[in-house]
Write a protein that binds this DNA or RNA. Structure first.
Lengths: 73, 73
DNA sequence: GTGTGACTACCAGTCCGTG
DNA sequence: ACACGGACTGGTAGTCACA
């Protein structure tokens, strides 16, 4: 697959930024998304590789379009 | 997690559209991405739930920004 | 050139906990 | 409120033969 490494790290950092802008804690955000709190933590730290469905859910939880989650790069 | 519906189908359709606009066959596209042809097929048909890393590779193969892969919706 | 079912190894995602 | 760990289950990555 040979990847494009820090995509997870950059994605996670961006998610964190958007979450903080929404004034949500990781826990509140996780609840809103219906995901596990530790999983959100992992995503933001760049150690998780979320699927399309999860990315979609994250966008929903942040109340933004998916494309906005990729407004870095 | 409760599924946010046909996000996969819509994503796949959009990938297909972008691929055709690039004049690539599934095979050529798969080669360019370093992925299997049948895997691309699955994504375009909406039966696969690709991860962030795969999505990143797809964007690279199409030579577009990731956010452009979500320009639907 | 593409759709599809089946397959194994590995990871996505959950749940328990700690500091 | 968050980082980080271990253990677990189901789903995804990646590939094949065949239509």
């Amino acid at each position: 697959m040979i990847n494009t490494f820090s995509i997870q790290a950059r994605f996670g950092a961006h998610i964190k930024k958007l979450r903080l802008q929404s004034g949500l804690s990781q826990e509140a955000f996780a609840d809103k998304c219906g995901l596990d709190r530790t999983y959100i933590s992992g995503i933001e730290r760049g150690v998780r590789n979320p699927t399309l469905q999860v990315i979609s859910v994250l966008a929903g939880g942040l109340e933004v379009k998916i494309s906005m989650l990729f407004d870095f790069k």
